[in-house]
């Protein structure tokens, strides 16, 4: 285990150039980054073949620290850039990492359309229920009644369930994990990268500094431990009553379906378009010859 950690540290981090990182002590982002790097390492994908794109926010800083082809885009737009990269070079493994506000508020439209479109992309969404970097304003996943810097009297809106949203929008593979279940998370990310088609991993994570502190959820340790208490595997949840599921959330694979991947389908379009163009060119040539005869 220690050996693997050392390989990850030496091989995958831009250790000399970009550390220390900007994340607060106890932040879940590092756990997600570790799980991602271990997943890529175990899949033995060449670093030159991996593109990691992010949006803006705390999660947006992750690509800076890792030794792939990395792309820190504009707020909410990581998936649009990733779409361009993937279509231009389909052989690359393109992964995006986003936050909850990034992916489902400002980038919400891109997110559902990426799921509908079904390109071969992987989206990791770190859901910490707040806009951490800007000071703890309410996000699309801030629970009803929660205190944030823009809902000091308690939040009056309702939260998205990101994984369920991804399932409904048409994601080929959708899973949820938490920063408590680190090796489970690694497995989910590994499966998501392996899956051909649009895959989503929602990661329940802690922002004890902005969200936890204001809502008396404790520090990093208490918050991360609460995921252990409240997470129920998908299989187990099926056997539980709605009352038993009150305050709980599911982890594991929520959807894993097979459907045509648009990246591949477009290769068929290229073949057909070329065939059609050749046919038209031949006909033109035939008509030209006829005219001369």
């Amino acid at each position: 285990m220690l050996e693997r950690a050392e390989i990850i540290r030496q091989e995958y981090l831009r250790h000399d150039k970009k550390f220390p990182h900007v994340w607060c002590p106890g932040c879940g982002n590092g756990i997600v980054m570790g799980a991602l790097l271990r997943a890529v390492h175990s899949l033995e994908i060449d670093k030159d073949e991996v593109v990691l794109a992010s949006g803006v926010g705390c999660s947006g800083r992750m690509p800076t620290y890792v030794d792939f082809n990395t792309l820190h885009t504009t707020h909410g737009r990581a998936l649009t850039f990733a779409t361009g990269v993937k279509l231009a070079k389909p052989e690359l493994t393109v992964i995006t990492v986003m936050g909850d506000g990034d992916a489902t508020a400002i980038g919400g439209n891109h997110f559902i359309h990426a799921a509908r479109r079904n390109l071969d992309l992987t989206a990791i969404i770190i859901n910490n229920s707040t806009y951490g970097m800007t000071g703890g304003q309410y996000s699309p996943t801030t629970p009803f009644g929660s205190i944030s810097t823009t809902s000091v009297y308690g939040h009056v809106e309702h939260a998205f369930s990101i994984a369920e949203l991804a399932v409904t929008a048409g994601g080929s593979f959708v899973a949820r994990g938490t920063v408590y279940h680190a090796s489970h998370l690694e497995q989910m990310i590994k499966k998501a990268i392996q899956k051909r088609g649009f895959s989503v991993v929602e990661v329940i994570s802690n922002c004890h500094v902005q969200h936890g502190r204001r809502n008396k959820l404790g520090g990093a340790v208490e918050m991360i431990n609460s995921y252990k208490e409240n997470a129920v595997t998908v299989g187990k949840a099926e056997k539980m009553s709605p009352e038993e599921l009150e305050g709980k959330f599911t982890i594991g694979v929520l959807a894993d379906v097979e459907k045509p991947i648009s990246t591949q389908e477009y290769q068929r379009v290229i073949v057909e378009a070329r065939r059609n163009a050749e046919k038209i060119a031949k006909e033109k040539e035939k008509n030209r010859v006829k005219r001369y005869e």
Partner: peptide
């Protein structure tokens, strides 16, 4: 596609510009 290139219609112009930059990169 006749030339082996790619066309995509995105969900809006913000996304279009993102994809254009991604492909150029």
């Amino acid at each position: 596609p006749e030339l082996g290139g790619t066309f995509i219609q995105m969900e809006d112009e913000i996304a279009s510009m993102g994809a254009v930059i991604g492909a150029s990169l």
